[in-house]
Design a protein around this nucleic acid. Structure first.
Lengths: 220, 220, 220, 220
DNA sequence: TATGAATGAGAATTCATTCAT
DNA sequence: AATGAATGAATTCTCATTCAT
C-alpha cells in the first residue's frame, strides 16, 4: 500500500541519542522532551537554553547531556516525535477518507492541522529552525505534502500523479493559512475567515474530485 | 481618501536612533542598513551579530552603535524602511486598481508580494522576530491587511466593511501562500502551483466583486 | 535579649547567588570572595573587573558567573560577610561591656573599628557603593548605629532611648573619625591625634554614663 | 601674614586646559563645568560620561574636548574651582575669627562646611576620586587642615604649632562628622545630633584656647 | 548514571578620545 | 573654534559543552 510507504516517510529510525534501556530513563527522556517543547515554544530555539530545559525537567544539565549530546539533538528528537504524531494522524485520515464526504474531509483536513499546531506550539519553532540535520533527507514540508498527496489519492484515485502533486501543494497552503488565521488575534472576525478558508478547501477538493472523474471518463 | 490614511498606517517616524547630520553619516547609515539586511537574511535575527554587520558595512563597531544603539533598533529601522516600500507599493496598486481587470489585479497582488519578498529576504526574518517594539501599535500583518482592504474597497466599493475585512484576510493568506510556494524548492512543479494559486486569487476576487454588485442591486 | 535581635540586624540571608553544593564549589566561592575583596580594595568598585576577580582567584570567568551572576551580587555577598563579622564583633563587645571600665570601652570602640577597616579595606569601597540592593531595608550606617546603641544601653541602661540614639550617632562619628585619621598618612602626628580622639570618646562616654545615673537619681 | 600663604595653598595656578581668550569661551567653560558638576554629583565620577557632560552643557563633545582634553582635566578644573571657593571662605573666616566668641566660631566652622558640601555635591565625589593628579602636591585634606590650622592660630596664637596641628586634625574630623550627620537621613533626630556635634566643637575650641593661655602664662 | 562545577569563545554594549570637515 | 563621525579596547554577561566525582 502507498499508505505504509508514506507513513514511513515521516517516521525516522535514528535521531534519538541513546535509547534509554530502563523505565527510569524513559521517564527522564519524556520529561526532558516535554521541557524542551515548552522552552522552545516559549522562548524560541536560540533563546531556549539547555540549562533551562534541564531544570524545567527537574534534571541536571549533566543528565540532559547524557541523553541528548547537543541542543540540535534534543530539538531533532522532539521534531521527530511530532512527525510521528503527524504520520499517525494522516494515517487515520487516509483510512477514514473513503467514507467521508467532501465537506467533512475539507473540515478534517483544515481542523486537524490547526489542532495539532495548537497542541504542539513548539512544532512551528522547530520547523522554522531546520538548521539541524533532519533524520530524513526530505524536508518536513515535503513529507507533509506527500501525506496530503496520499490522502488525495485515496479520494481522487484516478487523478494523474502530477495533478495530485500540484493540488496537494495548494491544499497544504490552505492548511497553513488556516493555522495562521487561527493564531492571528488581530483578525476581528477570525471565525468567519476560518469558515471562508474551509469553504475554499471544500471548493478545491470538490473541483479535484470532479475533474478526476471527468478525466477518467474522458480517458476511458 | 482612505488611501492617504492607510498609507500612513505603514509609515512610521521612529525606529531610527540618531539621525545622521553629515553626508558621511548618511552614507554610513545606508551601508549599515544594507549590511544588516544581508546578515539578517543570511543568518536570522539571533545569529546575526552586530560585529558582523559593522564589518560587512566596512564600519567599526563603535560607528554602528553611534547610529543604532541596540540590535533591536537597527532591525526596527530596517523593518520600517521595508514598511515604507510596501506602503508605496500598495499605494500605487490602489491607484492602478480601478483600471485593472480582475485577472490582472489578481496577478499583480500575487506577484507583487512575491517579488517584494524575493527582493528583501530580510523582511521575513524581521516579521517573525517582532519582539522589538514596533513604532505603530498595529502588527505588521494587520497593517498589511488594512492595505489589502483598501485595495479591495477600490474595486468592490459596495461591499460591506465586515465583508471586506474577511475577504482581505483570505487574500492575504493567498499572497503568503504564493510567497511560500515560490520559495519552496522541494516543489517539483512550482510554476503550476503558482498558476493554481493565482487562479484561486482570481476566482476569489471575482466572487467578491460579483457579490458586491449583487448586494448592491438587491439592497437598492 | 536585645542582643539577639540586633545581631540579626546585621546578618542577612540573601546576597549569595547560587550556593555551592560540592566541596570544590565552596573553595571556589571563598577564593572568589577573597579575590573580589582585593580587587575592590585596590581599584574601587567600578574599576574592578569581573575578569580580574576571576583570574586573581585562579578561576575562569564562567566559573565566577556560576556563583555570582552579576558584579552586584559578588559585592553584595562580600558586604554581607563583612556585616556578619561586624555583628559578631559587636556581639562580643556588648557581652564584655559591663565588665569594662569607661576608659577601656572607649579604647575598644575606637580601635575595634579601626582594626576592622584596616583588615578589610574593601569594606569602605562597598559601603560607598551601596547602589546594589541591600538584603536589609536598613542602611549599613543605620545597622551599625543600632549596634552601638545596644552597647551603650548595656553600660548606661537608664539613659532614655532618644538620648541613646543621639549619643550613638555621635560615637559612630568619632569611630569614623578614628578610621579616617588612622588612614591619613598626611597627618604628621597621627598617634597624637588618635589619642586625642580616644580621649574625646572617653569624655563623651563618661558624660553619658554620669548623666544617666544623675537622671536616675533625680527621677527616683 | 600667614593668611596669604595659606590661601595660596588652596589656589592653584595650572589645571585649566586652555584659557579661553574670548567671552564666548568663558561662557562655554562655565557651562561645561556646571554640567560636569551636575553629572559627577548625580552619577559619580566613573559613571559620568563626557558625552553626557557635553550635551548637558548644550555643547558637542568636540567642543568639550577643545577646553578639557581629558576627563581628569575637567574634574581637576572643577575641583580647583571648589578649592578656590573654600580658600575664600576660610580667608573670610580667618579675618572674622578674632572678633568672634568661641561659641560663634564653633558654629561657623561647623555650618560653613556643611553648607559648602550641600551647595557643591560634586565636591565629595571628586575628593573620593583623587586619582587624577592634583595641581598641588598636597592632598586636599591636608590643604584643608592647613586652613583650619591658620584659623586656630588666629584665636589661639600662643599654642605650639605641633599642638595646633593635632587640634586642627580633630576639628577637621568634627567638621566632616557634621557633614555626614547632616546628610544621613536615617538619623531620626538629626537636629539634636548636629547640636551635640556643635557642642563638641565648642568644648574642643574652648579647651584649646584656655590651654594656650595657660601655657603662655606658665612659660612666661 | 547523576550531578554540579569548569571552561572559554563569543556577544552586546560603552565610552574616552581622535579626526575630518 | 565647532561639530559630529570614527575608533576600538575593554567590560559585563551568556551558554553550549566537557569534566570530575
Amino acid at each position: 500500500m502507498s499508505s505504509q510507504k508514506s507513513t514511513a516517510t515521516l517516521r525516522a529510525e535514528s535521531g534519538q541519542a541513546k535509547a534509554p534501556q530502563r523505565a527510569r530513563g524513559h521517564a527522564r527522556v519524556a520529561a526532558l522532551l516535554e521541557a524542551a517543547a515548552t522552552e522552545f515554544a516559549d522562548k524560541g530555539y536560540d533563546a531556549a537554553t539547555m540549562t533551562a530545559i534541564a531544570s524545567r525537567a527537574g534534571a541536571s544539565i549533566g543528565s540532559l547531556y547524557q541523553f541528548f549530546p547537543t541542543k540540535d539533538r534534543i530539538a531533532g528528537a522532539l521534531l521527530e516525535s511530532y512527525l510521528n504524531i503527524l504520520a499517525e494522524t494522516f494515517h487515520k485520515l487516509r483510512e477514514a477518507a473513503p467514507s467521508l464526504d467532501v465537506s467533512l474531509l475539507a473540515s478534517r483536513l483544515t481542523r486537524t492541522f490547526v489542532k495539532f499546531r495548537a497542541t504542539h506550539p513548539a512544532f512551528a519553532v522547530l520547523v522554522e529552525t531546520y538548521s539541524f540535520a533532519l533524520p530524513s533527507t526530505m524536508s518536513i514540508r515535503e513529507s507533509l505534502r506527500r501525506e496530503i498527496e496520499s490522502v488525495l489519492a485515496e479520494v481522487a484515485p484516478h487523478l494523474a500523479p502530477a495533478e495530485i502533486a500540484v493540488r496537494a501543494a495548494v491544499i497544504q497552503q490552505i492548511m497553513k493559512a488556516a493555522v495562521a488565521v487561527n493564531g492571528d488575534t488581530s483578525i476581528a472576525s477570525r471565525k468567519a475567515v476560518m469558515d471562508e478558508l474551509e469553504g475554499l478547501m471544500r471548493h478545491y477538493l470538490q473541483d479535484a474530485i470532479q475533474r478526476a472523474n471527468l478525466d477518467t471518463l474522458t480517458s476511458s
